[in-house]
Design a protein around this nucleic acid. Structure first.
Lengths: 243, 243
DNA sequence: CGTTGAATTGACAAGTTTCAAGTCTTGTGG
DNA sequence: CCACAAGACTTGAAACTTGTCAATTCAACG
């Protein structure tokens, strides 16, 4: 038995824009089921299309592009609440792949109903566009990070932002949250070599700002970490819709 | 007298998805006028909202973020056909600024009519989301470029992609097109220092692949340039809608 | 145990930034 | 018409950051 959208535990989180009555009704029809996948599963493959769209409910994953050289650029980390497959939905095909890092549970939608969403539920269509705009904003921030920060600041920024996302989802407690990625994943996200990432992690650990071991992130000194990252510790998360 | 959407010269370009009859009708009502601005004008400012949305018709501009340190990350180059202000439209405020590099002519829409677009013209709403997805794709590519390429390849990639965009818009002839930016703009887009950008440009010039002087880009050897950039010379532009 | 994948470390090479200075172009006012 | 100022572009040298190569350690697993 799948969870009814009515009781969706994610929706209650204050990061997500509340749904109006008819939106919720629509989503209950739009949702076609749930999917559980194992760690390591490729959910979407760059260059292909997918008959399904998803919202992550549990677990974590990665969006990435594979370059001609065989290298990998991690575009973003996938956490609960993230919508997956918008590109496949509106464009011809995915421009990046999505892979499950841990076991995941996903909410499943049919791509062929996407047009009905635009036609019958403009509120949800608006939210979908909003979500795309938020995504664009986040990528813009990533770009600025890669373009203007050295390794230390990049990693500090990544940790602050992951921690904030985790906190907004209720995954973080006292600065600790699960972060089940490999150093290579982080390196590929930040455009750093594995070796340099490793050495910088040690540096941060010795500095007492943050530790990341055995898939656990521990933010020991949030203000210090924000200081290294050049981020304002008081800034607010952007409100976004949940699809 | 402003141009009627019926005769919009941009719309004819094959890069843009053709509009269906009712879409065109809707756009004629949605458009509230045209705006001409001088080079140097800031069209949208990060952190503010704008009552208007635009589509660039003529001229070129820049989207950029200003970092706390005062540095600038150029997110993208604005060319004719680009939609400006989606973030302001759906989110609370712009997350980046937009500035005119040359004199520009823009098609103007009222932000307050955006909701009507979603309600009354789902086709256009769909296209707007599509556009956001394309934007996300482009940013993802930029990210991969910053993350994995050295200065030479970054600049080569930027030139190939600008050239292709220009060619699709009919701005390029025999590999030549206007590119009225400063070296500093390119450096800020690619996350390179001005000095290194300059030296790398000389390197490319000497190699005979491409020249960029006096606001003119001359692609002398497209295949060579693609080779440096690590791009496939035969790849196709992504079809996208025009708003 | 041996194997595998991940994390760690040191040494060196390469790429990039920073600093500092000089040139070229353009527009302006005397 | 010339002198000057401002902005963009160019260049060289030194310092620094980061990548690459090569080994080693560590933990999990059959």
């Amino acid at each position: 038995m799948t969870t009814d959208c009515l009781n969706c535990p994610l929706r209650q989180r204050p990061v997500f824009e509340p749904m109006k009555g008819n939106e919720l009704d629509f989503m209950r029809k739009f949702k076609t089921g749930e999917l559980e996948i194992n760690a390591g599963t490729t959910l979407m493959l760059e260059g292909t299309n997918s008959p399904q769209l998803y919202t992550a409910l549990k677990g974590m994953g990665l969006r990435y592009k594979t370059l001609k050289s065989g290298e990998r650029q991690v575009i973003n980390f996938v956490l609960p609440g993230d919508f997956i497959g918008l590109q496949a939905g509106v464009m011809q095909e995915m421009q990046h792949s999505v892979e499950a890092t841990t076991d995941m549970k996903l909410c499943v939608f049919d791509r062929k109903n996407l047009w009905r969403l635009f036609r019958d539920c403009p509120e949800r269509a608006y939210d979908l566009t909003w979500l795309a705009a938020v995504e664009e904003h986040l990528l813009g921030e990533n770009l600025a990070i890669l373009g203007h920060m050295n390794g230390l600041r990049r990693i500090a920024s990544a940790f602050v932002r992951l921690h904030d996302r985790g906190a907004a989802l209720g995954l973080a407690h006292n600065g600790r949250m699960p972060l089940p990625y490999k150093q290579q994943d982080l390196a590929d996200a930040l455009g750093l070599s594995l070796v340099h990432t490793n050495k910088t992690l040690r540096h941060l650990r010795k500095g007492g700002a943050v530790r990341w071991m055995n898939g656990q992130l521990e933010v020991l000194d949030y203000d210090l970490l924000c200081g290294i990252a050049g981020l304002d510790p008081g800034r607010r998360a952007i409100l976004r819709p949940l699809i």
